[in-house]
């Protein structure tokens, strides 16, 4: 495959995996938690690097998942002790992120990991860092993302019912014997690994936009969760592709451009969605 092909594939995988997971965050009103986790993941990656002294994907995955769950747990504990939820989120992720940035500048300055990378990823370098699987040479980051996307799809398919029920009515789920807390941590774990998988491509901050924007667009298009998931993947992939060509056109950051493209897609759905768009609202208001 060509250089451009690999980049497009990687970007689309980011859009699709984040889009799927993001849907649940939106219907559960937990996008802020995802924002927090995606920032904290930086600390996980740095710590994994400091401990294992390598940038191997598997260490990063472990480090980030652990920190992601620690973040969720810390926010929950603070909230339980009486701190408002949004404030607990604000404290935990900014602190973790700050520690991560300091550690990078202190210890990891000369390696591949740097602050800039953390911020916006380095999708343009991905196709150069490859390994060979079954005789095909594929970029490491793309391979990891592929695995993560498959894993996320599998988890969502397996636990679709439970995820849906706990999102809609946690109290009912409890009475039906669904392990609500476990499902919550499962989803947060999923957010963490998707965030790590996307780290190389879009960085720790912009992954938030991939998690939230496609899902928000999809939320305005349909009332059914399963359809919303499909729409969300579609919007995710679309913002990745438009973003890439936009970046080529402007000669600017690809990840930033992907997120901006998502913004434009959202603007369009916001106005023109056949179901919940402003235009339709305006029309029904006029006729009634």
């Amino acid at each position: 495959m060509t250089y451009e092909g690999w980049i497009l594939l990687t970007a689309c995988l980011v859009g699709i995996s984040c889009g799927m997971v993001g849907c649940f965050l939106i219907v559960r009103r937990m996008t802020m938690l995802a924002d927090a986790i995606s920032h904290s993941v930086l600390l996980g990656i740095v710590l994994a690097f400091l401990v294992a002294n390598s940038l191997n994907g598997i260490y990063m995955l472990i480090g980030a998942t652990v920190i992601g769950l620690v973040t969720t747990f810390a926010i929950q504990s603070l909230h339980n002790s009486g701190v408002q939820e949004d404030a607990s989120i604000g404290i935990v992720f900014t602190t973790f992120f700050a520690i991560g940035v300091i550690l990078i500048s202190l210890f990891a300055r000369d390696v591949h990991l740097d602050v800039e990378h953390a911020l916006m990823g380095e999708i343009a370098f991905i196709p150069w860092n490859t390994y060979t699987v079954f005789g095909i040479e594929i970029p490491k980051a793309t391979g990891m993302l592929l695995c993560i996307s498959l894993f996320a799809t599998l988890v969502i398919l397996l636990f679709y019912k439970e995820l849906k029920l706990t999102s809609f009515d946690a109290a009912l789920a409890v009475t039906l014997g669904v392990p609500v807390a476990l499902i919550h941590y499962l989803l947060m774990g999923l957010v963490s690994i998707t965030a790590v998988g996307s780290f190389d491509a879009v960085g720790a901050v912009l992954v938030v936009s991939m998690l939230v924007v496609p899902g928000s667009c999809a939320y305005l298009m349909t009332d059914r969760l399963s359809v919303m998931l499909l729409y969300s993947c579609l919007f995710g992939a679309a913002s990745a592709i438009f973003g890439y060509y936009g970046a080529l056109l402007l000669d600017a950051s690809i990840s930033g451009s992907m997120s901006a493209a998502g913004g434009i897609l959202f603007l369009l759905t916001w106005f023109f969605s056949p179901r919940y768009g402003l235009l339709r609202r305006y029309r029904t208001m006029k006729t009634s």
Binding site: M32, S209, V213, Y219, S255, G256, S259
Partner: peptide, 24 residues
């Protein structure tokens, strides 16, 4: 004007504006 809740709206605006900032 939409059924998107406040937390998602904040995240959305935050990340899209920041992304645009990074492009510029």
């Amino acid at each position: 004007t939409t059924r998107i809740k406040k937390d998602a709206a904040i995240c959305l605006i935050l990340s899209v504006f920041f992304g645009t900032g990074i492009v510029l």
